[in-house]
Amino acid sequence: MSGKPIQTVSQTAGPFVHIGLVTPQAGFEVYENELGGDIALPDIPGQRICVEGAIYDGNDEPVKDAVIEFWQADGEGRFARPNANDGFRGWGRVGVDFETGQWRINTIKPGPVSEAEDTVHAPHICLWIIARGINIGLNTRLYFDDEKEANVSDPLLSIIENPERRATLMASSKAENRYHFNIKLQGDNETVFLDI
């Protein structure tokens, strides 16, 4: 290769993405150890929460073949690092339900994340969404609507001027330790996606 390497271009994950990333959902098993089912193992300290929702396209049809990955800090706002291997991976993934487009994760609520001395991010989970028809993976973030004070000073939420757009990043508290978060790929209430 001559000159500076140039970034590889993205291609859609296609409708059969489950084979590679969540094999049992495709209808068979290859790996002894499936990856992505354990964002936070049961012995990880923190507030156990369940987040669920659905994903919809521009015609309000459920997107039934999507895979979503999650990346989050632990209850004290720390991301998993190579040498902090205490069972907290902070990463997981799910294939949405083939019939309904619904998804659900069980995890711990992340703590506020200090990025720099004077920058604190409100508790949030990073999402990456791939599916048939998505040419390049979509990044977004999920915040919690019961963290009002922290959300007000969050640097990402602060640069989204339109409150209706900001609201698309809020998981709503449905019951104790249960949140709901819908993703809309296009159209009314389109989720805010990030260029990171």
Partner: peptide
């Protein structure tokens, strides 16, 4: 590519101008 028609965001992406959580990532063994 027909599947992209209804699955493509129409709003501009938001670009954070600060170091973000996405600068870390999962580690596998």
């Amino acid at each position: 590519y027909k599947s992209s028609r209804a699955r493509s965001p129409r709003q501009p992406l938001i670009k954070p101008n600060f170091r973000t959580s996405e600068t870390d990532g999962p580690v596998f063994f």
